[in-house]
Amino acid sequence: MIDRSLSVLKVALGSFKGRVAAAWLLVVIVAAVFAPLLTPYAYDLQTLSQAFQPPSASHWLGTDEFGRDLMTRLMYGARTSLSVSVVAIGLSVSLGLVFGAIAGYFGGRVDRAITVVVDLTWSFPEILLALILVAIIGPGVTGTLLAIGVAYLAQFTRLARGQIMSLRSETFVEAARSLGASDSFILAHHLIPNTLAPVLVTAMLATGDAIILEATLGFFGLGAQPPTPSWGGMMSSGTAQLFRAPGIILFPGLAVALTVIAINIFGDALVAAMDVRSRERKA
């Protein structure tokens, strides 16, 4: 499994686009993980005399209306954005796989029950669903995380269900059954692994969407609460200073855009690399 993942990664990094995207993602991840070590300032250190500084040697991206270092806040913001969206998507992927597999494999009444609920949530746009959920759970990191997780649950349940349903009638499943494999064995050894590739790819792309959704909730003031920085929250406070210090809204906006684009490009490269067939052909 490990050398398989490694070789997928190697192929994905084979293209120039893939390498650039991966490099940017690596930068963002390193910045997020090591933010406390890399930044000379505290993210909530206010120095009002230093407010609205343009980019300079001591403040690479300038400062905001409270004189806080924007670079520092951007790096801490990456922590919030990345962890919330990755954990939220992880939540929807794992729950979606379980629900989708059950619905797709066993069919019948269970399938109908799951499908009805899923279709109901599917009929709302993600942002609306997330807003409703945050309103119920309450603003903050946990609320945003759960809201995004549930907002994308329908997508993964449907995807897994469809995959499992079409795989269920494959000859190799019939063959496994004819050789005495149980339902759980077939699900765990044949159906879920064969579902994983499209699900992981969708998960990758959904993580990009989730970053935007997280930023949107943050922009509405429903995400991480001040003084904890998040990209959406920074942009929100930047709107008031749009003409005085455009950097406050520009840099987090750029961070969101670049990260989402990088995720999409890298996701595409992974799709190509993950196909067993194409990999072997290149090897």
Binding site: T171, F172, A175, S178, G180, H189, P193, V276
Partner: peptide, 24 residues
């Protein structure tokens, strides 16, 4: 019934092209 499958009764399917899991 399942205890018979594979152990007492083997089955060879019609189409070998799809009788094996592509990922294993």
């Amino acid at each position: 019934r399942r205890a018979y499958n594979g152990r007492r009764i083997g089955f060879i399917t019609q189409n070998p092209m799809t009788a094996l899991d592509p990922l294993q």
